[in-house]
Structure formats: structure tokens, C-alpha cells
């Protein structure tokens, strides 16, 4: 299993790499400017789009080639924080400054079953760090989880293997963080076997 972490400049990008490595996945951090062709050459089974400091409303150019990945990569992708916001924006939704930004500890409630939340309890503690959020979800996506101050905490694409999380499963303080990555690995495995 080979999953790369696309670096959007987050404080926790390297943590994503570490969690994947701890789970026995072959992984590498790549800049978000890496051309898709180069990623394809490496036979990658999945991508994690990291968080980052870019403000989604006016700095999405700082996110490099990740739109290309969403358009053409034939593998599962999970976007975290700004990666999640970008996913909605890219497919025609809206993202911008949060009504109430969240920093640190938050309670997240799962609203809908999805392979990414397999085995999860209804609510859990998650660590947040965001100034922006998804404001409007494109039709192809569904909300999977919410928190008190942020409605769109988790999303998935109805047809493609794309997932987004506003919170940070890669940090140690988030509950069931490793489970998100385990579930994503399962999603990648299933997708690969069905290809």
C-alpha cells in the first residue's frame, strides 16, 4: 500500500506521514506543486491532501496542483482542513471565513454512515485549527459529520472515493485519529481490488 501526503504547508503534514508510516504504509511527503504525471509514475494507491495556512477564500492558488489531482487521479483522496475546503470549492461549492473559527478541542458528531467512519461512535473529541470552512456543499457531496460551530466537519463524494475532514485526525489528541487512516487504507485497498 502506497499513500502519499501532499504538503499544503500544514503544521501537521509530517504527522500525517508519521501516522501512515506507523500503520505500515509506504509513504512520502510531496510538494503540492508535484505534477500529476510524476505521482502516477509511482503507482500510488491514495493521496492525503494536508492542511495549510492558505486562506481558501483568496489564496487557493497556494494549493498548487491539487485541483488536477481531483480532476484526473484515479485513486481515493482524502482532504484535511484546507484540503477538505478546497475539495468543496473545486467541485463548485463555496468556502470562506468561518462564522465561528475552531481551535483545539471540539466535539464532533457523526451524521451519516460512511466507510471513512466505520466503527466510530456517534460522537468523539477532535482537535481543530481553522479560520475557514465550507460554506456551501456541491450537489455531488454529502455531509458526514458536524460540530456545534461548524456544520460541515466531514464530507464524501457520492460517486468518487473522495473524502474531506475539517478536523485533524493526524494529531495525537484527536480520538479515533488512527482509525480514520485505517479506514482510508481500507478504502484504498478496496478501490484497488475493484479496479
Amino acid at each position: 500500500m502506497k499513500i502519499f501526503v501532499v504538503d499544503n504547508g500544514g503544521q501537521w503534514t509530517h504527522r500525517e506521514w508519521r501516522v501512515l508510516r506507523d500503520l505500515g504504509v509506504e509513504t512520502k511527503i510531496i510538494p503540492n506543486t508535484t505534477p500529476l504525471k510524476e505521482i502516477e509514475k509511482e503507482n500510488v494507491d491514495g493521496l492525503v491532501l494536508s492542511g495549510g495556512a492558505a486562506r481558501i477564500g483568496w489564496e487557493s492558488a497556494r494549493l498548487g496542483e491539487i485541483g488536477e489531482y481531483l480532476n484526473h487521479a484515479k485513486i481515493p483522496i482524502i482532504g484535511l482542513c484546507v484540503g477538505h475546503q478546497f475539495m468543496a470549492l473545486h467541485f463548485g461549492g463555496k468556502a470562506g471565513p468561518s462564522t465561528v473559527p475552531e481551535f483545539g478541542k471540539t466535539k464532533v458528531t457523526v451524521k451519516r454512515d460512511s466507510p471513512i467512519f466505520k466503527g466510530f461512535p456517534k460522537t468523539f473529541i477532535a482537535w481543530e485549527s481553522h479560520n475557514d470552512e465550507i460554506k456551501e456543499l456541491p450537489d455531488e457531496f454529502e455531509i458526514l459529520a458536524s460540530s456545534e460551530n461548524c456544520l460541515i466537519q466531514a464530507i464524501h463524494h457520492k460517486e468518487k472515493p473522495f473524502y474531506g475532514l475539517q478536523y485533524h485526525p493526524e494529531v495525537e489528541d484527536t480520538e479515533f485519529g488512527y482509525e480514520i487512516f485505517k479506514n482510508f487504507i481500507e478504502i484504498c485497498k478496496k478501490y484497488k481490488s475493484e479496479k
Binding site: N8, Q11, H14, A53
Partner: peptide, 16 residues
Amino acid sequence: IAPDWIESGGGERDTI
């Protein structure tokens, strides 16, 4: 160690 260069920033990463 990792947090030292991560928090120091550079490129797209902000300096904390």
C-alpha cells in the same frame, strides 16, 4: 527534531 523545523516554517509553511 521534526517540530523544530516544522514550527520554524518556510515555503508554504507559516513560521510559528
